[in-house]
């Protein structure tokens, strides 16, 4: 009887998590606000306070599809294990797990010039400790891209959330770069290329 009860509890828990994972997938995949992704407190309201565990299970499922659950914290990334409060304020996304062949980027509406410009801007800002004057970034882009394309692309990068500009015309990396780009890997790859 005990085994049966244990069996039933196991099934119930499995069904519980299955339901929660489906709900989490819906919340994370489908666009609800101006920005993609979902805030931690929204997940907490929908899934309960054990949502981090549910997201971990979902992440394991997504690995087979080369997708992952990505967390972008408000402010600085916590050094150790994040607290529930930090997670509640963070934003959660579904991103690709592995890289993307550059020819596939075209399907997403990105020309090679656009990606190269974005890579340059992000790398330059990283090299300047996270903040660089806009005109310096634009001058650097203009060495390889036409001026009119630089103007269009800068506006695009800012609109999409890759870069942000403050009142002093200083550019810094915005939420989408933090969510999508492995900055350390980018710097290592750049430095690893032959001059």
């Amino acid at each position: 009887m005990d085994e049966m009860e244990r069996g039933e509890t196991k099934m119930t828990r499995k069904a519980y998590y299955a339901r929660k994972i489906k709900r989490a997938a819906q919340l994370l995949f489908y666009k609800r606000h101006m920005k993609p992704g979902v805030k931690g407190w929204e997940l907490k309201n929908a899934l309960g306070s054990d949502y981090p565990k549910i997201l971990k299970v979902l992440d394991d499922h997504l690995e087979k599809l080369d997708l992952q659950v990505k967390t972008v914290f408000e402010g600085e990334e916590p050094t150790g294990k994040p607290t529930l409060e930090e997670l509640n304020k963070a934003r959660f996304f579904i991103t690709l797990r592995g890289g993307l062949p550059s020819k596939d980027a075209k399907m997403m509406g990105w020309r090679i010039d656009d990606i190269a410009g974005l890579a340059t801007a992000i790398s330059y800002i990283i090299s300047k400790k996270g903040k660089a004057p806009r005109d310096e970034v634009e001058d650097l882009l203009r060495t390889k891209l036409p001026g009119w394309r630089v103007d269009i692309n800068m506006r695009r990068y800012i609109r999409y959330g890759y870069l942000a500009e403050d009142e002093n015309e200083q550019l810094y990396l915005d939420w989408r770069t933090r969510a999508e780009v492995d900055q350390k890997a980018l710097v290592d790859l750049l430095l690893g290329t032959e001059s």
Binding site: F29, S102, L140
Partner: peptide, 25 residues
């Protein structure tokens, strides 16, 4: 390094570290 690499090389490098957000409507 940025100055020396051509556009295609920069784009190729970037796509290796780029994990775009998936969102559906």
């Amino acid at each position: 390094k940025i100055q020396r690499l051509c556009k295609e090389e920069l784009a190729t490098l970037f796509t290796k570290v780029w994990n775009p957000i998936i969102e559906l409507e």
